[in-house]
Design a protein around this nucleic acid. Structure first.
Lengths: 112, 112
DNA sequence: CACAATATATCGACCATCTATATATTTGTC
DNA sequence: GACAAATATATAGATGGTCGATATATTGTG
């Protein structure tokens, strides 16, 4: 693929960045919101999310801070400027990819 | 994800099966047609395609036969009944997945 | 008090894909 | 006729994303 392949398998990164557009969130909350917002299609695993959050942090796309809530320390994540830019690019890549898949699935004769 | 994850990263299998719906094809031809039909978005590598074809063959979704064409022996692949069923399932999974991504990207407030 | 739900985290494994490489034939060009 | 480019198939090694399993600690419920 000549389009960002890390998105195609790794669309989870895009989805997490998207969630953070609405405001800071902690890990467990993201799993729940992703499930709700996807109409119960997505069920991201903790074993997927936390390594992903750390990877996004290393890229400088999100930053983390600890805060007390409900008598418990929670680790909140915030979208950075760079994260917003990355999100925009990933959304564009996704649109292109989804459109291309639709073209192939619509299929029939050859194009060109 | 509670939907067929092998599709999400591995949408290539679905796309190949789809191409074969139109008729038998050989490997190199599939790479070219995929590029044309996707409006030059997809550029599948030979190192991706051939292992994939062998995997699809092992699953019984396609069968292979050799034929002469242009003074050269080519290995053609044909979609089986099981392959057609698998394709239908993968298309449904793709629709669900793409719809869920759209929901998240449309985003904004929380859903129920 | 036990148990489920909440909350974060790491590890080992698997699988899809890529790059690089190998090999052979056909077509086009000088 | 020689050579390069395109055609055609194939495998090996590496990378990267995701999962299941596991660990740990707290909060709410019966």
């Amino acid at each position: 693929m000549n389009i960002d392949k890390s998105l195609l398998s790794g669309s989870n990164g895009m989805l997490i960045l998207k969630l953070l557009e609405d405001g800071d969130k902690y890990g467990y909350q993201m799993i729940e919101e992703l499930e709700k917002r996807s109409d119960h299609t997505f069920d991201m695993k903790a074993g997927t999310l936390y390594p992903l959050l750390h990877a996004l942090e290393e890229k400088g796309w999100i930053t983390a801070y600890d805060a007390m809530a409900a008598g418990r320390t929670r680790r909140y994540y915030q979208l950075t400027k760079e994260g917003k830019d990355a999100l925009r690019e990933k959304e564009e890549s996704w649109d292109r990819y989804a459109k291309a898949v639709r073209l192939v699935l619509k299929g029939g004769a050859s194009f060109g």
